[in-house]
């Protein structure tokens, strides 16, 4: 059954790494729904979270193919029950010079906050599960979205398994 799945990766922080990982997805015909990458507590190592869609076959292939890449130290499937995924949204919504009651109410409901009041717009941010972000965006559509920016999901395991600790993957000290 085709469904969304999230892969967490520990990778070396080198130029070209992103290209290699994205290249694996594209050469095998798998789509990346979102990808987030950033340095870890050690700048030599980065952590990535990649969300894509596929059945069990694709999930297994993605993880196995990723683990073959030289720069990938570890790639694991982060299943929904044992991990937490959060996404960050920045959004600019039209206020048309009128009141912004509807927007404020919506933001309160979703736990977002306003970062800037403009003449005809507000800029707000919101973090939460990707589905919640999606829902929020859909509710903003009738209000008039000027532009928005999503971070892509960030995921961590919540249990004792699939913990992507970098300490086993640090290069030896020179």
């Amino acid at each position: 059954m085709s469904e969304r799945f999230t892969v967490g990766l520990i990778v070396t922080n080198r130029h070209g790494v992103l290209n290699r990982i994205a290249g694996m997805y594209s050469k095998r015909g798998y789509n990346i729904d979102s990808l987030a990458v950033g340095e870890t507590e050690d700048p030599r190592i980065s952590r990535m979270t990649i969300v894509s869609t596929g059945d069990e076959y694709i999930r297994t292939q993605v993880v196995r193919q990723l683990n073959k890449l030289y720069d990938v130290k570890l790639a694991v499937l982060l299943d929904e029950d044992n991990s937490i995924a959060v996404e960050h949204l920045l959004i600019k919504i039209r206020t048309n010079g009128g009141g912004n009651g509807a927007i404020t109410e919506l933001l309160n409901d979703y736990g977002g906050k306003i970062l800037e009041f403009g003449d005809h717009f507000i800029v707000a941010d919101l973090t939460g599960k990707p589905e919640k972000i999606q829902e929020f965006i859909e509710k903003c559509v009738p209000l008039g979205i000027i532009e928005l920016c999503r971070s892509g999901a960030l995921a961590l395991s919540t249990g004792n398994t699939n913990i992507l600790s970098i300490k086993d993957y640090l290069p030896p000290e020179a």
Partner: peptide, 8 residues
């Protein structure tokens, strides 16, 4: 020897 070949 290549795990990705198993079940591919």
């Amino acid at each position: 020897i290549d795990e990705a070949e198993l079940s591919k």
